[in-house]
């Protein structure tokens, strides 16, 4: 059946102007144009968005959960990147 290989698309919706597009789910469609129309019917029936992105799921590269530790390790020991790391002397304003 031709439908066996209908590609999977990931859908991102911008809820309002000023907000970033957020992943809302996925759907199947033969091409980008239909993916966009299907996304409108499936994910914005109640005015949930003002803009939609559809991305072929096969085009997404994800970090692997197996190497979660080593991959994010470089950030783990750098607490000094957070402002809360620093002690502010008594009485200093606007800092």
């Amino acid at each position: 059946m031709s439908q066996q290989h209908t590609p999977l698309w990931e859908v991102f919706v911008r809820a309002r102007r000023g907000l970033a597009h957020t992943h809302v789910g996925s759907l199947h469609a033969p091409d980008a144009e239909l993916a966009l129309r299907n996304a409108r019917d499936l994910y914005t029936r109640r005015q949930e968005g003002v803009s939609i992105w559809v991305v072929p799921a096969s085009a997404i590269t994800a970090s692997s959960p197996d190497e979660k530790d080593s991959f994010f390790d470089p950030a783990a020991d750098k607490v000094y990147r957070h402002p809360t790391f620093y002690e502010v002397p008594e009485g200093v304003a606007h800092l």
């Binding site: 059946m1 031709s2 290989h5 033969p30």
Partner: peptide, 16 residues
């Protein structure tokens, strides 16, 4: 509905 799915797939293939 099979013909609709087939037609959409054929159109997508032709465009690609």
């Amino acid at each position: 509905g099979a013909w609709v799915r087939e037609a959409a797939a054929a159109y997508a293939a032709k465009r690609a």
